[in-house]
């Protein structure tokens, strides 16, 4: 314990006193308008893409479990395609869709078109980013949701059916809430992974945290300090996400455990009470 603490302290000392890390510069940019804008775009992209991923993932998971082979087959093909190609390639494909279909039209199939649009005006960076991140995420989420659904015993479905519930409401009221215990932890990982994946959007290109950081270091040549500053932001947001995950997991543990695990605040209070009684 002591040895580790000493090593950590030495490393921290080395990093903090090294002039080349240029901590004052990082402090100066950390809350600058450009970086804050990048941070907020990164957050928005993370939330919106995860929302698309979760909703579409649930739909795909239910499709995968359908008795109809056409329905389950198309869900399988979706997962196969979106999981089997790199995310960066998918993002670039969406961004450059204009090259493939220069115009998109609305009209009679194979007949005259009433409305015709240039694709590049239809697919601006933000849409390409959301499509790329969200549709890719849906493939992963569908596997997570499917595992969650399969973890709920068949007896639950039968009990619900025996009181006259229908398939979709059994899914919504009985199966998915129980599946959440299995779904939430990996979804937390997915969200953190999504936060980091949004940096790929810098190549769409669309201005998020990494792009904003690159904008700054191409002007002041302080590549390392700026990248470290961006990393600190990513770490900070990840930490907040982890706290959120703890409370969500606790919420869905209801009924599954006899007593819920204590929150950190509750632990702290219990410690304080112990100390108190020990002193007296």
């Amino acid at each position: 314990m002591v040895a580790i603490a000493v090593l950590v302290a030495m490393a921290a000392h080395a990093v903090l006193t090294n002039q080349r890390f240029n901590w004052s510069l990082e402090g100066q940019y950390f809350l600058s308008a450009q970086i804050l804008h990048g941070v907020s775009v990164t957050l928005e992209l993370t939330v919106a893409s995860m929302a698309i991923g979760v909703v579409l993932g649930v739909v795909l998971a239910i499709m995968r479990l359908s008795p109809n082979p056409v329905v389950s087959g198309s869900a399988w093909v979706y997962v196969w395609g979106f999981r089997g190609t790199p995310l960066l390639v998918q993002l670039l494909l969406w961004a450059n869709l204009g090259a493939l279909f220069p115009t998109l039209g609305l009209g009679v199939p194979f007949g005259p078109e009433f409305v015709t649009r240039q694709t590049f005006t239809l697919i601006p960076g933000v849409i390409a980013a959301l499509l790329g991140l969200g549709l890719n995420e849906a493939a992963y989420m569908s596997e997570i949701v499917r595992a969650g659904i399969l973890s709920v015993g068949e007896g639950q479905v039968e009990a619900a059916a025996s009181i006259g519930m229908r398939r979709m409401s059994i899914m919504r009221r009985i199966v998915l809430p129980q599946a959440m215990r299995v779904i939430v932890p990996p979804t937390g990982n997915e969200t953190i992974s999504m936060l980091k994946s949004t940096s790929l959007v810098a190549y769409v290109p669309y201005v998020e945290l990494l792009f904003a950081t690159q904008n700054i270091y191409t002007r002041n040549y302080q590549v390392m300090p700026m990248l470290i500053m961006a990393s600190i932001w990513y770490l900070l947001i990840t930490s907040v996400l982890m706290v959120g995950q703890f409370y969500i997991e606790r919420h869905y543990a209801r009924g599954a455990m006899r007593a819920l695990p204590p929150t950190p605040m509750q632990k702290l209070r219990a410690r304080a009470a112990q100390l108190n009684s020990a002193i007296r």
Binding site: A159, Q178, Y252
Partner: peptide
């Protein structure tokens, strides 16, 4: 049912 199958949540 033999194993109750109550909704645990």
């Amino acid at each position: 049912f033999q194993h109750f199958n109550l909704f645990p949540h």
